[in-house]
Structures are given as C-alpha cells and as structure tokens.
Design a protein around this nucleic acid. Structure first.
Length: 464
RNA sequence: UCCCCGAUAGCUCAGUCGGUAGAGCAAGCGGCUGUUAACCGCUGGGUCGUAGGUUCGAGUCCUACUCGGGGAGCCA
C-alpha cells in the first residue's frame, strides 16, 4: 500500500486512490448514525484531512470512539470527493490502526486556542498546533530560500567556527566555553585564572558572529555566506532578542557599500516572495489569526523599492518632523527605536536602508568615509520589527584599520590574522548579517521572537 | 539591567465596597446530528503563585520574593 501525506491527499487529483495515511488526530466528531468524522494532520500542510470512520470497522467501539486530540494512528482508505463544504477531499477509512492514545485528562493541548505563554511551557508539544506548524514550515521555506538565493548568485557556503577565541568580535557579550572545574579553578602565581590549563589552552567563547572568519574566505574565494547558530550573552529581555539565534552572513570581495545594499534588498525581497509563492496556506493562516496586515505588507515590499538615505539625512527628517520623541535626535548618537519606527512606519511606510553612520557609534572594521566622521555602515529597517539586517563595507586599508582599533581600545596583535588580510593582497569588500528569526517574525507577524524558534534560549530560560 | 502590568479550575478568563469561589472551553455521562472550533442537558473538578503582615474576617488591602508578559537599552 502506497503511503501518502495529508497534503497530497487533500488535492483533488488524488481522488480515487487507495492509500495509507499516518498522523495525529486534531478533532473527532461522532455521528450517532453510526460513524465518526476524524480530522488528522501529519505536519505536511496547514489543513487537516477529514476521515470517515464507519461503525462497521472492527475496532470502532474499542478504539476509534476513544480517539482524542493528539492520538496517533495509521489508516488505509479511499480518497473521495467530499460531499460537504469545508474540504475538497475526504477519506473513507477501510482499516484503522491506533498507535497511541493521548489521555485527554492529562494531554495539555485542546482543540481551542491557547496563549503563546502557555505553549512556551510545553515547547515539546507546541509544534502540534496550527500556529507552530505554520511557523515551522515558513521557517523551513526561508532557510531553503536563503541557500537557493546565494547558491544561484554564485556564493560559496562556508562554515565558520561556533567556538572562537576572538574575545572581541565586536558584537556584544559572549558565553565562555570551558572545561575547567568551576568550583576549583586553577590559579597562577598572581591569583589569575590559569587558562593554559583550559581545553583550548586559552579563553574561548561561543561565536557572536562569523564575520571575521567570513572575511578570510571572501578574500580568497570571492563571494561566500555563512548560516548558522549565533550566541549573545546580553541580558536582553525583549520580544526581538534571543541568546541563541540563527544568522546569515554573506561577505563579498570587490563589493562596495552600494553593491552591498543592492544585494541586501534583492535578498530580502526574494525571501518574502518565496514564502508568498510557496506557503500560501500558512500565510493565509497568519493573516486570519495573527496579523491581518502581514500578507499585504509583504506584497507591498516585494513590489516596491526600499528607501535609501544617509544617517545625516535621517536626522534632518526627524528634526523637521515636528514629532515629540522621548529622546531628542541629534547628530552623533544612535537612533532610538522610536526614531526608526517613525521613519519606517509613519514617514516612509516601507523598508528603509540607512547608511553612512557616525564613526563614533560603529565598530572598528567599518570603512571610514573621506569625511573622517562617518563609516560605510548600513542597516535595513522594516516596519514593526526594526533592524532586520546590519552590515557595512569593511575597512581594507591596513593603516586606517589599525588606527581605528587603537581608538576603540583594541590591541592589533590580537587580530594579527585579520590584519594579514589587509597586509597581503587587500581588496575592497563588504557584507551583512540577517537575523533569521527577525525575518521569520516579520514575515509571519508573530509578536514574540520566542515563538519563531523551536526551543528559545533567553536569560534565565533554557528548558527543553 | 531599568520602568509598567499580571499570576484564581486542565486551558482562557470574570470575581463589585474586604464577608468564605464563578463562566466558557476541556473531561465523564446522556441526547441530537454528513459533521466540520458541531450543538443541547447533567456531573465531577480550586491550598486563589510563595512567604509574611493589616483585619472580627483577605482572591480582594500592604510588604518581600518567584515566575510570566509589555516597553526601554544592547543588537540580528
């Protein structure tokens, strides 16, 4: 007997086939006329499959009448056109095997809406809900599109290390990795921790970015991208931050800032277009249940040009806006969330790429402009979520890079290999980072980033 | 880390002026039905987050703590 997915069985072209289906019960409705409607889902699509289970089945009273939400089963049946509204096909079951009942008294999921807060406490079961199934499928589609896009553009997928000894990748607090016994840490003569006895014979950390290593490969192979888990030990408690998240970081030799912005815009639009094209049921679900605007917003972005303006121009717009901001705007300080929101949500009402930020508020590796006050940084801001991409053209001039490091209190010796890239055949190059979860959050309209990653890690919480 | 809000049945919530606990859904039983978040009736289900305090009396007022949420900062 051929196995078939629920997704396939829901399509009209499957009518007339006799197949095996396996999945989990979403709901059961009994008819006293002597049969039951059982809706099953196997994760292959948003919708359920209605199965007719007749009272004449040998295990009808003993097992089928006891099927509860969450129970698992296998069945053999004939796919038919459904006579009633609500679905195009349905299955007439000929044989039903129950794998496992989900005891309704203790099974936490019911056929009703639960709060996301509650579902986070049962993260191992929440993928069985409509919302988390849809998020998982959209997340998968976005990941596939990330690879498709870069592979089609001739990029090489490079794996940068998860464990790093660069103690300042320039992107925030790091998790330390150690095999030292924390209750008996070895000390040297000066009572300092003796890291020569640690696993890597020096302090090591979980990566906060693969950028520096990515530059190494871009400066040999041209266009590369990394895509993997990233860790930040910041004590951030917001709906947009995770301690462990996934980041895509392309890095391109012979790219200047304008090339970088072009690529970022093409990239983001491709992700959005692919989800609209390939996940219509999921997006319709999000439009109905999560965020009415999300589909229209994505369509609008795919068809429109991103606004590009310099930091200096943005400050001028904000100053002239007449808006009362909690924090007043002035040149030289970073824009606050309220300022970015005003630009994307009220002034332009679409994504905005800001570039040429003051050098004083950006890291050492961003290329200094001729005005000596600004660097070739760019942020892609979207309505609702805010910063979705951050990137820059990198400083390729050895002397300028060394000067900038010293200004920021970093010792060039620690970055000897990074500086080698400028010593030997340096080239203009650029890159950016896109937070996967921020992208999925924006696409789906989900309000909390903890609900677009399967098992979220946040301060004080690493359950499951 | 800072500011604000919350914690009551398995879930989602209501609970008036401080007077001893309620609904919907879920569950069990019964009824009805090609149903589709099915529907109707009945039944069971509670240390009101924890620890103190005020009071004749606290779910309700006060304090601390724990956990959760929203916002800010940091950023992706």
């Amino acid at each position: 007997m051929e196995k078939m997915s629920v997704a396939q069985a829901r399509r009209p072209e499957s009518i007339g086939q006799e197949v095996q289906l396996q999945g989990w019960v979403r709901t059961r409705r009994d008819s006293k006329a002597g049969f039951s409607f059982v809706e099953i889902n196997d994760g292959s699509c948003q919708g359920n499959l209605q199965v007719i289970m007749e009272g004449s089945l040998p295990n009808y009273e003993s097992e089928i009448k006891r099927l509860t939400t969450g129970s698992s089963l296998s069945l053999v049946g004939l796919i038919k056109a459904s006579p009633a509204k609500g679905q195009t096909t349905e299955v007439q079951a000929q044989q039903v095997t129950v794998y496992g009942i989900a005891d309704a008294d203790s099974y936490p999921l019911q056929k009703k809406q639960h709060s996301f807060e509650f579902l986070r406490t049962i993260a191992h079961l929440r993928p069985r809900t409509n919302t988390f199934g849809a998020v998982a499928r959209v997340r998968n589609r976005v990941c596939r599109s990330i690879h498709d896009f870069f592979q089609e553009e001739g990029f090489l997928y490079v794996h940068t290390p998860i464990i790093t000894a660069s103690d300042c990748e320039g992107a925030g607090a790091m998790f330390q990795v150690t095999t030292l016994k924390l209750d008996a840490v070895p000390k040297d003569e000066e009572e300092q921790i003796d890291y020569s006895l640690d696993f890597f014979a020096r302090r090591s950390y979980l990566t906060v970015s693969g950028q520096l290593e990515g530059e190494s490969y871009a400066c040999a192979l041209g266009k590369i991208y990394t895509f993997g888990p990233t860790f930040r030990a910041e004590n951030s408690n917001t709906s947009r931050h995770l301690a462990e998240f996934w980041m895509v970081e392309p890095e391109m030799a012979f790219f200047e800032l304008a090339d970088n912005m072009d690529l970022a815009e093409r990239f983001v639009k491709r992700l959005f277009r692919d989800v609209l094209d390939h996940c219509p049921e999921e997006m319709e679900f999000f439009r109905e249940r999560i965020d009415k605007e999300t589909v229209d917003r994505l369509r609008g972005i795919v068809d429109s040009q991103f606004v590009r303006l310099t930091y200096t121009e943005a400050v001028t717009i904000l100053e002239k806006s007449g808006q009362k901001f909690e924090f007043p705007v002035h040149w030289g300080t970073d824009l606050q969330a309220e300022h970015e929101r005003y630009l994307t949500e009220q002034h332009f009402k679409r994504p905005v790429i800001l570039y040429d930020y003051p050098a004083s508020i950006k890291p050492f590796y961003m290329r200094l402009n001729d005005d000596e006050r600004t660097v070739r940084a760019m942020d892609v801001l979207v309505p609702g979520v805010g910063e979705i991409i951050g990137g820059s053209q990198r400083e390729e001039r050895l002397d300028v890079l060394q000067r900038r490091m010293e200004q920021q209190g970093l010792s060039p010796e620690d970055y000897w290999w990074y500086l080698d890239l400028r010593r030997f055949g340096t080239v203009p190059h650029a890159g950016f980072g896109l937070g996967l979860e921020r992208a999925v959050q924006f696409i789906t309209g989900m309000g909390n980033i903890r609900d677009v990653i399967p098992f979220p890690r946040t301060p004080g919480s690493a359950d499951f």
